[in-house]
Write a protein that binds this DNA or RNA. Structure first.
Lengths: 113, 113
DNA sequence: TTGACGCATGCCGATAACGGCATATAATAG
DNA sequence: CTATTATATGCCGTTATCGGCATGCGTCAA
């Protein structure tokens, strides 16, 4: 019992500001590790480690190119995030006024995780 | 230098599965802490702690009601997430085929964080 | 082959995130 | 006032995360 279960899902992957920055950069095209590191002010090992996380959740793909390794965006992995937030879209404007729904007794159910 | 800067932004708040579950539950209406804990199988202190995080990033609001404290959704805080993912929408279908853009030399810029 | 380059991995130290438990605080009930 | 309910907080132990540094491995050039 400790530090449960954040690891290795997309939500966790994009919780890291540097990793988000990497993804944004990759929208501009594939890049080798060194380029990413340089443009973001990271050390090379630092960049590699973040890329590893992103790769493991499927947000980036790598491709060998000579002695470098090009990383490219695979944004499909972001769909679950998008879809999850979609479920809240209708609350964006009125979630406030609704603060009075006042559910005193329980017994309703919500499906979905 | 260690464990940098994840804390206390929305992306981090929703990186926790239990916190996402809380938010989903709150779509069904405001609830006191105990109800949330019970419905999610959390201990009361556990629920309180997660609610604290959610409150600090502005995703929930609390309201006193007698001796209980009702928590309600304030989904506006999810907008930044939605907007961030929106920036990748156009890559969802073709990010793959594009894996050939092959940017060998650098010198382009990306704005946005 | 030897050396330089590009990248991944391993180890370490610091920190903070989570869960569990006990307790403090607030408020209502009796 | 006292007891009970509802919630927040504090402390502890465990583990994972992140950054830095050194090193290992593959690839290309000379």
């Amino acid at each position: 019992m400790a530090r449960a279960a954040t690891t290795s899902d997309v939500f966790n992957a994009i919780a890291e500001p540097q990793r988000r920055a990497i993804l944004v950069l990759l929208r501009g095209g594939d890049r080798p590790v060194t380029a990413l590191a340089q443009e973001l002010g990271l050390t090379q090992p630092g960049a590699s480690k973040h890329l590893r996380v992103l790769r493991e959740v499927g947000l980036v793909r790598d491709r060998k190119a000579g002695r470098q390794r090009l990383y490219g965006l695979d944004a499909r992995g972001l769909r679950p995030v998008r879809e999850w937030t979609d479920g809240f879209e209708r609350f964006w404007n009125q979630s406030f006024d609704r603060l009075g729904a006042y559910v005193q007794d329980l017994g309703r159910d919500e499906k979905e995780s």
